[in-house]
Computed example of a mutant assay.
Amino acid sequence: MINVLFAGHPTRWPEYQIPLRDAFAKAGLSVDLRTDHAADQVDYIVYAPNSPLQDFTPYTRTKAVLNLWAGVEAIVGNPTLTQPLARMVDFGLRQGMVEWVTGHVLRHHLDIDFDLEHQDGSWTRHIPKLARDRKVTVLGMGELGSACATALATLGFDVTGYSRSPKSHPGIRCLHGADGLDQALTGAEIVVLLLPKTPATENTLNARTLSLLAPGAAIINPGRGPLIDDDALLAALKTGQVSRATLDVFRIEPLPKDHPYWAHPRVTVTPHIASETRPETASEVIAENVRRSEAGQPLLYLVDRALGY
């Protein structure tokens, strides 16, 4: 019998209980899934960083901590966490992000907001570029970023991808490193941020890097709030260097009611909904990782502690 502790936020247990049990059974695993296993009897922990469990020291038998979120920045630095940590990458998370990003890229590409702002009886026509003539840069070419970049390239956009380490994807110009970041941003008309949150990525978009964009560029951030210097973005919106921004993530969440983003006519705020872990598909990934571990195979999506993701 494999003892699995569900240590996500307590409110999520009713949503995950049945999908997890079904996934374990489908994988042929004999699992005792609970929220109250004795710490020294736990083989695997299904985890979310907003869990009450923050001290991993008693979990001496635990073979792996399996995160329910794609982001691990809130847990990877925990000094008590010595067990292997796997992040969540699943179809539902990936597909949700692709749909959200594609929708907002098309919104800015077609300048749908222009049409909404001119519903005043005047026959004001504007003809958008074709996708092949629109330069889109995706910052972050991990699982989510590469999926979004591929979808946008399939639609015909001129896509450049940027990552900290070298990557290669068919139909996408891939750049990396400090020089690569500047090249990726120079002349970009739409920028999608999907980098992880690390000390090295904080304020990736700042006054200097925003100045590299094509005048009137659009910013789309479903990644992490600290990737953007908020004051620099507001200043760029004021000058018109950035024409619009769609922001799903923020340094403080929920976004404070008095934050200038709420009332800004060129900013769209969405409440961290770009992509959500879905119990049915996430449970399949959790079960597969337990199966792999029990078979002596390497875990999927293992976090590199040195890199922070």
Rank of each mutant, 00 (worst) to 15 (best):
residue 111 D to K: 04
residue 112 I to E: 15
residue 112 I to A: 12
residue 113 D to T: 08
residue 114 F to S: 13
residue 115 D to T: 12
residue 117 E to K: 06
residue 117 E to R: 09
residue 118 H to I: 01
residue 118 H to G: 02
residue 118 H to L: 00
residue 119 Q to E: 11
residue 119 Q to S: 04
residue 120 D to P: 00
residue 120 D to E: 08
residue 122 S to H: 12
residue 123 W to A: 11
residue 125 R to C: 09
residue 126 H to S: 14
residue 126 H to E: 15
residue 127 I to C: 05
residue 127 I to Y: 10
residue 127 I to R: 13
residue 128 P to T: 14
residue 129 K to M: 13
residue 130 L to M: 11
residue 131 A to Y: 08
residue 131 A to I: 02
residue 131 A to E: 15
residue 132 R to S: 14
residue 133 D to N: 15
residue 133 D to A: 13
residue 134 R to Q: 15
residue 134 R to M: 12
residue 135 K to A: 15
residue 135 K to L: 12
residue 135 K to R: 15
residue 135 K to I: 13
residue 138 V to T: 01
residue 139 L to P: 09
residue 139 L to D: 01
residue 142 G to S: 00
residue 142 G to A: 02
residue 143 E to F: 04
residue 143 E to T: 11
residue 144 L to K: 03
residue 145 G to H: 03
residue 145 G to Q: 03
residue 147 A to F: 03
residue 148 C to R: 01
residue 151 A to G: 03
residue 152 L to H: 06
residue 153 A to R: 10
residue 154 T to P: 03
residue 155 L to P: 05
residue 155 L to C: 06
residue 156 G to Q: 14
residue 156 G to D: 14
residue 156 G to P: 12
residue 156 G to I: 11
residue 156 G to T: 11
residue 156 G to W: 14
residue 157 F to V: 03
residue 158 D to P: 08
residue 158 D to A: 15
residue 159 V to T: 02
residue 160 T to Y: 08
residue 163 S to V: 06
residue 164 R to Q: 13
residue 165 S to E: 09
residue 168 S to E: 13
residue 168 S to W: 06
residue 169 H to N: 07
residue 169 H to S: 10
residue 171 G to I: 04
residue 172 I to V: 15
residue 172 I to Q: 07
residue 174 C to G: 08
residue 175 L to N: 04
residue 179 D to S: 11
residue 180 G to C: 05
residue 180 G to Y: 11
residue 180 G to K: 00
residue 181 L to S: 02
residue 182 D to I: 00
residue 182 D to F: 00
residue 184 A to Y: 01
residue 185 L to I: 00
residue 186 T to E: 12
residue 186 T to G: 08
residue 187 G to V: 04
residue 187 G to S: 10
residue 188 A to Y: 06
residue 189 E to W: 05
residue 189 E to K: 04
residue 189 E to I: 02
residue 189 E to M: 05
residue 190 I to Q: 03
residue 191 V to D: 01
residue 191 V to E: 06
residue 192 V to I: 11
residue 193 L to H: 09
residue 194 L to N: 10
residue 197 K to S: 15
residue 197 K to N: 15
residue 198 T to R: 03
residue 200 A to S: 13
residue 201 T to M: 07
residue 201 T to G: 05
residue 201 T to K: 07
residue 202 E to K: 13
residue 202 E to F: 05
residue 202 E to W: 03
residue 203 N to G: 08
residue 204 T to R: 05
residue 204 T to S: 07
residue 204 T to F: 07
residue 206 N to L: 03
residue 208 R to H: 14
residue 209 T to W: 03
residue 210 L to I: 13
residue 211 S to Q: 12
residue 212 L to C: 00
residue 212 L to R: 11
residue 212 L to F: 00
residue 213 L to H: 01
residue 215 P to G: 05
residue 215 P to F: 09
residue 216 G to I: 11
residue 218 A to G: 00
residue 218 A to K: 00
residue 218 A to Y: 02
residue 219 I to W: 06
residue 220 I to E: 02
residue 221 N to G: 05
residue 221 N to H: 02
residue 222 P to H: 02
residue 223 G to F: 01
residue 224 R to P: 00
residue 225 G to N: 07
residue 225 G to A: 07
residue 227 L to R: 12
residue 227 L to H: 10
residue 228 I to Y: 00
residue 228 I to H: 04
residue 228 I to F: 00
residue 229 D to W: 02
residue 230 D to G: 06
residue 230 D to R: 06
residue 230 D to Y: 01
residue 232 A to M: 13
residue 232 A to G: 07
residue 235 A to E: 11
residue 235 A to P: 03
residue 235 A to K: 14
residue 236 A to I: 08
residue 236 A to L: 08
residue 236 A to P: 09
residue 236 A to C: 09
